[in-house]
Design a protein around this nucleic acid. Structure first.
Lengths: 133, 133
DNA sequence: CTCAGTGCAAACGATTTGCAGGGCC
DNA sequence: GGCCCTGCAAATCGTTTGCACTGAG
């Protein structure tokens, strides 16, 4: 879905990466995508995975998440939603609540930026980690 | 302001790092803090800067920001507020609007996490970069 | 004196990149 | 057949860490 799809080839690597990412809801890191994809394409290189994830994200076909932690994560679901991260195990899950449009209005009146977007990240403890507290 | 201040020494390095950070509102990276501090303590090591920034953040005396981009940023202002980042020049500024407490309530009912916190990051184009568009 | 803290340099982990060869269009 | 894309390995960048020494308490 985009403007510059001019000469972007549909290689099997690209295809498999996209398929695997759309298949899960775990917001994997590049390395985790690499592991998933390698089961089907054992000779794929990590560099290729990075290149394709970045490219797909640029096109808006997937989302690159900046949710803190050391590694970037990728999300095959591009519908608007927020995220929550478990501070214990670092797992990231979706939060499907209505986007708070009022936030951008408030922000606009408090600064001189042209506001383009916003994202909310919650942090908490997931149900797996709660008992261990 | 904390629980484990037992044997934390007040070294000049620590002191200067904190002073310099409190002095600015630019949310500097570790390297930028290093540059600021080096003017007063030319022999300080980058490792020391990292160690102290992390330590001060753990104590809650400063804030470590996870606002995307490659490097972590640090904020001497610990009062609750949000942030906006310019997608052109990567500058980060404060957004002082009321914290949207309703968000955490909505999120709580949509997932099984124990929610601890939330943060809103806006992205946009700052007034310096707007003309260049 | 003691031990937390330091400077320095080497180690590390995530990501990027240069290059030569390979395969989609 | 051109050139986008790949695999591979080396390079880069931010950050962390091991170690012997220093200085705050």
């Amino acid at each position: 879905m985009n403007e510059l799809d001019n000469n972007m080839r549909l290689t099997s690597q690209r295809q498999v990466i996209l398929e695997e990412l759309k298949k899960v809801k775990s917001h994997p890191t590049a390395n985790e995508v690499y592991d998933m994809v390698r089961k089907r394409l054992p000779r794929i290189g990590l560099g290729t995975v990075y290149r394709n994830l970045d490219l797909l994200a640029e096109k808006g076909i997937i989302n690159k998440l900046e949710v803190g932690g050391e590694q970037k994560r990728f999300d095959g679901d591009t519908s608007p939603h927020y995220h929550i991260r478990c501070v214990k195990c670092n797992q990231v899950e979706d939060i499907f609540i209505e986007r708070a449009k009022g936030l951008e209005k408030s922000a606009a009146s408090s600064c001189k930026y042209k506001i383009l977007d916003h994202h909310v990240q919650f942090s908490g403890i997931c149900c797996k980690c709660l008992p261990e507290t």
